[in-house]
Design a protein around this nucleic acid. Structure first.
Lengths: 124, 124
DNA sequence: TAATGTGTTCTATTTAATGTAGAACAATTT
DNA sequence: AAATTGTTCTACATTAAATAGAACACATTA
């Protein structure tokens, strides 16, 4: 799985990493039950600090995407059906993006096409 | 138009304001050609600092949503069809959200329903 | 004309976020 | 036994975020 970190980006490194891990899971590069690299080895590979990777892992855990097993490792969780709190959180995240797309001139059809186009690149 | 600022949120105030203005435009509460309040009066209404509102306005201008006319005011732009850079920017914003929704167990149908449901609440 | 309101710009301060760094710990794994 | 694991702690530097006050040039209004 390929991770690209752009240190000069305005997006914090730990968020870049978090997003790319999520995309990797969605694409099937990482599957439920798989382990993520240790924070130390991953940090060495990416050329960032151990604590930055650790922050990503805890962000993923907070969102219910991985399970961190102390003294062992980080494992991709098997996801059941979405719960109400998570649905509401996703709603709040999608709303401003959809509003912006419409305000900037996308039609509803174009927006649905964009979303479906992105989904087609994901396997799960 | 109703703006709710939550000072205790982890989301910066200027982003909360930016998002809610965008949603207000998408819903039709604000229309192209309308003026936004002055940074001073808006800041007074919201109970935040003038510079915070100013930052929101410049964020909206950078995204092509409003036009700031020096010594005059901020006006909602009439949007033409979306350009390539804007499309790519929206793509990069949507991708991690869609991936997360799928990873957390939403089906593609549920995700399209969520997006269409949010769109239905917008008029434009 | 005089007064007010406008966005802009500047300095300044405080707090929080971000990223890096090093060390030590207890538990697991090899 | 040795190496690796996530955790925790302190520490430091830089940037972001938010507030505050002042002054400026220009526009609008009374």
């Amino acid at each position: 799985m390929i991770i690209r970190i752009e240190p000069e980006s305005e997006i914090p490194i730990y968020i870049q990493l978090t997003n790319q891990i999520i995309i990797g899971i969605a694409k099937g590069d990482l599957q439920p039950g798989d382990s993520l690299p240790s924070v130390r080895s991953f940090a060495a590979d990416l050329g960032v600090n151990m604590h930055t990777v650790n922050k990503s892992y805890h962000e993923l855990e907070k969102r219910g995407i991985i399970e961190i097993i102390p003294k062992s490792g980080a494992v991709i969780r098997k996801t059941l059906h979405i719960d109400r709190d998570t649905y509401n959180r996703l709603f709040e995240m999608f709303q401003p993006l959809i509003a912006e797309a419409l305000v900037l001139g996308m039609t509803k059809e174009e927006l649905v096409d964009l979303v479906e186009g992105i989904m087609k690149k994901m396997s799960t």
